[in-house]
Every structure is written in C-alpha cells, then in structure tokens.
Amino acid sequence: MSELQATSGLLLAGTLFMLGLIGVLIRRNIIFMLVSVEIMLNAAGLAFIVAGSKWAQPDGQVMFIFILTMAAAEVSVGLALILQIHHQLKTLDSDAANTMKG
C-alpha cells in the first residue's frame, strides 16, 4: 500500500472520528449519541486496518475483530441503559438525566 493511500486512509479515519465526536457533543438524543460513539469506534477500527496494511501485518485486522466484538457487547449494554432511561424518565433527552449533579 502506497504512502498516499495510507495518508488518505488515516485522514478518512480522522474525519470519521471527528464527525462521531461532534455528534456525541452536540446531539441531545441519547440514541444518536450512541450511534455517534459507534462511528468513533469504527473510525478507530479503520485506522487499525490502514496501519496493518501499511506494514503488511495481520495485527491490524485482529484488533478490528476485537473492536467489533467489543462494540457488539457495548451496544447491547448501551441499548439496555437507554431502555432503562426511557422507562424512568419518559424521554430520550440526555440532559434530563441530571439528578446526580453536584
């Protein structure tokens, strides 16, 4: 894989990560926040793939599998939490869950 491809691959990963981050920051709907977190995870996974192919090593892909597995677990926990929040607060607005503020 050429230098150029690696650079643009990493740029894509960075852009995706920033998009996800901004999504988490500006969204109030908790489902969208979860989706944005997924985007950030996948951006990190993409960076691993790019790095793995640059050095022709399998490690990158191994790491991606790990991330995928973890993401699946995380989403299930996350969704369960979201269900609970919806159940308790009757809304999906993350700002409503502020009863533990200092």
Binding site: L25, I26, R28, D95, A97, N98, T99, M100, K101, G102
Partner: peptide, 14 residues
C-alpha cells in the same frame, strides 16, 4: 469544583 458536576453528559464528554 462542584459546578463541574452539572449533570449534563455532553459537558463531561467535552
């Protein structure tokens, strides 16, 4: 410091 514990998740992420 207790002002930082606003309870708004997005501020924590920030």
């Amino acid at each position: 410091l207790s002002y930082t514990q606003s309870g708004i998740l997005r501020w924590y992420i920030m």
